[in-house]
């Protein structure tokens, strides 16, 4: 197979970028999309050009590192599939394929197809966890949790933090990402003590980082490689409203208070 790849090239965050076309020949249908980029990069290097920078690591759809907008769609045409799990048999020989980075104010481009997603980490740092120190846990079976609740928590926890939801959203909102984290802990008894603070702290952090709000476009759900449903956003909104109605003192408890000796 043979393809024309139109790829976003940008030296660094200060320089403007542009689309550059490359021909790639000798592609087999068993190759993954990232292996086609590897092949193109080998050709570039041998010619003395710098390879196209793109993020990837596990190539199994679980680490959330790969982040490509392929033909206008985050992670490409195959539903519930990360870019690294996409294979060339899903394309037609001779096709032109565009490849761009995630685009969002909260994800500045680092180089070519690589963006800075640390904003998502900072959202989690604002309270996306259960505050429990090592060694202080009771026996794991002391507190039964219904299978339903555990399954619901798992469904939310399956988020790989890739940011496709942000890239797909016209408002560049991270609501699905935040909602999934809030929903995971809301489903479990361990998550209850900090439940409302968590919702408010995460939403505030999301705003601070420059992500937009949710206006129900549902593009996030359509591109999520893990199939996380938008219904979690409604739950997030409920918890957020409840928290907003609480008195300031309760609301403003910092995400975790450490006892200084």
């Amino acid at each position: 197979m043979k393809f024309t790849l139109c790829v976003w090239r940008q030296l660094n965050s200060d320089e403007p970028g542009s689309m550059v076309s490359y021909e790639v020949d000798g592609v087999s249908e068993d190759m993954s999309f990232l292996e086609v980029l590897d092949l193109l990069n080998e050709n570039l290097v041998v010619r003395g050009e710098e390879p196209i920078a793109f993020d990837h690591d596990c190539r199994e759809g679980i680490c959330g590192m790969c982040a490509l907008v392929i033909n206008g769609v985050p992670h490409g045409p195959e539903p519930v599939t990360t870019a690294c799990q996409l294979h060339m048999r899903k394309f037609t020989d001779g096709q032109t394929i565009t490849v761009e980075p995630w685009r969002a104010a909260a994800f500045p481009v680092i180089r070519d197809l690589v963006v800075d997603r640390r904003s998502l980490d900072r959202v989690i740092q604002a309270g996306g966890f259960v505050s429990v120190n090592t060694g202080s846990a009771p026996d794991a079976n002391a507190l039964p949790i219904s299978k339903d609740a555990a399954d619901r928590a798992f469904e939310a926890a399956a988020c790989i933090g890739c940011g496709a939801c942000v890239a797909a959203c016209p408002n560049a909102s991270a609501s699905l990402f935040v909602a999934a984290k809030v929903a995971q802990f809301a489903a479990l008894p361990q998550g209850q003590p900090e439940r409302l603070q968590r919702a408010i702290h995460l939403v505030e952090a999301m705003d601070r980082e420059g992500f937009g709000g949710c206006t129900n476009h549902y593009e996030c759900e359509a591109v999520c490689p893990k199939g996380i449903p938008v219904s979690f956003i409604a739950h997030l909104n409920r918890d957020f409203l409840k928290a907003a109605l609480m008195s300031r003192e309760v609301r403003d408890v910092p995400p975790a208070v450490e006892a200084e000796e």
Partner: peptide
């Protein structure tokens, strides 16, 4: 296992709610 459950790791459970 105790530590992970306390952190909210959603391990598989049986119908009685135990791990």
């Amino acid at each position: 296992i105790d530590q992970c459950v306390a952190q909210g790791v959603p391990f598989a459970r049986d119908y009685g709610g135990l791990l």
